[in-house]
Write a protein that binds this DNA or RNA. Sequence first.
DNA 1: GCCGGAGGGATGTTCCGCAA
DNA 2: TTGCGGAACATCCCTCCGGC
Length: 328
Amino acid sequence: MKQLPASGPLPYPHDWTVVDVETSGLRPDRHRVLSLAVLTLRPDGHLVEEFSTLLDPGCDPGPVHIHGLTPERLRGAPTFDRVAERVAELLSGRVMVAHNAAFDYAFLAHEFGRAGLHLPVEQRLCTLALGRRIGLPTPDLRLSTLAAHYGVPQHRAHDALDDARVLAGVLRASLADAAALGVPLPLERCSFHSVLRNGAARNGYPPPIRKTPCAFRCPGRMRAGGPLVQGMKVVFTGETLTPRQELADRAAGAGLNVMSTVSRFTSVLVAADVHAASAKARRARAEGVPIIDEPTFLRLLQDVRPGVRLDEPEPASAAVPFGPKAQR
DNA sequence: GCCGGAGGGATGTTCCGCAA
DNA sequence: TTGCGGAACATCCCTCCGGC
């Protein structure tokens, strides 16, 4: 078990609002929030305020065997619209933090919508995505597993307040890890329209990319330090700060060939974390494919050298040719 | 020029993890 | 149990090369 670091200065200048909800099901458009816990934290992770409440959903509470919230327990609890303003106060101007944040965000967004209000969250941080980005040596990324890993005591799983307190502890430790590793936070801009368009559960993974045909001949691998050349085959891995599709569109627009998998013909792998242990990163290392981070890629993207169109003869290039097996 | 084999890339399928 | 998407793996298709 890893020792929970003491709260201290962190290089992330955000005030945080840790949120956990218990719900009557998995569909934010059909199911309701039964219990809600909201904790506000200073940038160093120090607790400022706690708020939690049961809620009267006005419907069947769903899987009682999971959350233990029977109709009897919920009877007399306030409806969401009666606590919405208080919740909005705690969320405003802060980064919302949750485990599988898209899930909690979607439920809150729908509850605020039903109350005729707007969910005042502009950015959210998913601790699941953060754990994945850090590359934790845990068998999985469940909240209970992360709590055990960081030594955060968990008393009652699926109790909103206890889960939120555990999450706050995991957040503090994860932020310390991320800072120590120099890992950028997987902050995500929020909009209710995107919730309606994409649904709730995204598990923090980047969306799949659309394949764009490339009109240029592949010049080979990228040399150390660049430059990028039109036709180079580019693969993305990990959760990038820029949306995956936007990166792919910009790459394709610059004349690069965006591929879905790494092969020995891949010119360069763009990784959210160049030390990542993803399958693509492992394959890239095995094949000798250079790996660069997102900021480097974006910088190189501003100066992509002209390539050779598929219908033109091939001249000398600024790239490294592929190995003998690849030259056929 | 045709055929078969080899290999790479694209695509499809399955598994996994996560939330309640 | 549900829904979603990434990762891993399997399979298919296309291209290229060598032999005749």
